[in-house]
Amino acid sequence: MALRVLSTFAAVALAATALSAPVALAKPAGGAAAVKMIDTDNDGTVDMKEIEAVASATFDRLEKDADGTLDAKELKGRLSKAGVKQADPDNDGTLDKKEYLAAVAERFKLADPDNDGTLDAKELNTKAGKALLALIK
């Protein structure tokens, strides 16, 4: 009986953990946590290739109506109205994947003040780094 209660408790705990994981990931990650999640080559930094992979997946996840673009509703506040306008050279009010990735690249550059092509946890914790993370979360 005790084993059955214990295994039931473990199953409930596991389910609660699984259900809470997406909520935890939806919150803006701190620099160190973001590096851990994005850094596929495990060098302690993230480069544009790693950021672009996450950004591409984010675009695909957000793009709900299958029209190949993100509108303000799909962007869910990741870019301000002015930010969308700046990232939208064809002025159609939406961002296609190329435009979205260009906005991500611009934020990456702003978060990389030493211009070494990588971002560490300290750089991701800056205002510019947090703006980048907000765009790709």
Rank of each mutant, 00 (worst) to 15 (best):
A32V: 13
V35L: 08
K49S: 06
K27S: 04
G30L: 03
K36H: 08
A66Y: 12
K73I: 13
I38Q: 01
I51W: 07
I38P: 00
T58A: 02
L95V: 11
D67F: 10
K36Q: 11
V84E: 09
D88S: 08
I51F: 03
V46N: 00
S80E: 04
D71F: 07
T45G: 00
A55I: 00
V54W: 04
N42R: 11
K81A: 07
A29Q: 14
A82C: 04
D41Q: 09
K76S: 14
A55K: 00
E52T: 11
G68Y: 13
T94F: 04
V35P: 04
K73N: 13
T58M: 03
A53H: 03
T58D: 02
Q86P: 03
D96K: 11
L70G: 05
K73G: 08
G93D: 09
D88E: 10
A29D: 04
D88N: 14
A72P: 11
L79D: 07
P28F: 12
V84G: 03
T69I: 10
G31T: 07
N42S: 13
N91T: 12
L25H: 14
P28A: 01
A26N: 14
P89W: 04
N42Q: 12
T45K: 15
K76A: 15
N91R: 14
V35M: 07
I38T: 02
P89C: 01
L25G: 01
K85R: 15
A72S: 15
D60H: 05
D43H: 05
L70R: 10
T58K: 12
L75S: 11
D60Y: 03
V54H: 02
A66L: 11
D39V: 05
T45M: 14
D96L: 08
L62M: 15
T40I: 06
T40Y: 10
V84K: 12
D90N: 15
S56L: 04
F59E: 02
V84T: 14
P89V: 02
M37F: 13
D90L: 05
M48D: 01
S56H: 08
D41H: 06
G77P: 06
M48A: 03
G83E: 06
A55D: 00
K76P: 13
A32H: 10
G83R: 06
D43K: 10
L62A: 13
K73Y: 09
D71I: 04
A26I: 06
Q86V: 09
E50V: 01
K73A: 14
K36F: 07
G68E: 03
